[in-house]
């Protein structure tokens, strides 16, 4: 599988990373080289193997339904690049 410039642009757009036209070719070369190297995994026979999601092998603990957090809007908003009152603010979105 080899990435073409359109795919590079699509991935960048999905990842919300601006890519200038002149960067596309370099990215294409780099990503294709990495993906080409990853192709070695196709040699492995994975028939009937259950995928392993993570490093932990146990069932999930559940917490009690108690309010233990929140109630500090000032802390939540303290790092915001833009705010209006107690709201975060972003450029207007048209639905």
């Amino acid at each position: 599988m080899s990435l073409d410039p359109a795919t590079i642009r699509r991935i960048a757009s999905l990842a919300r990373i601006r890519v200038e036209e002149h960067e596309v070719e370099t990215l294409q070369t780099e990503l294709n080289s990495i993906l080409g190297w990853i192709e070695q995994l196709n040699e492995v026979n994975v028939d009937g193997v259950e995928p392993l999601t993570g490093g932990a092998r146990m069932a999930m603990k559940m917490r009690d339904d108690v309010v233990t957090d929140g109630g500090y809007p000032e802390k939540v908003l303290a790092n915001a690049p833009d705010r209006n009152g107690d709201f975060f603010a972003v450029p207007k979105v048209v639905e």
């Binding site: 995994l41 994975v46 193997v49 995928p51 392993l52 999601t53």
Partner: peptide, 8 residues
């Protein structure tokens, strides 16, 4: 596929 190889 990677997850399966991870299992292996």
């Amino acid at each position: 596929r990677a997850q399966k190889i991870r299992a292996l």
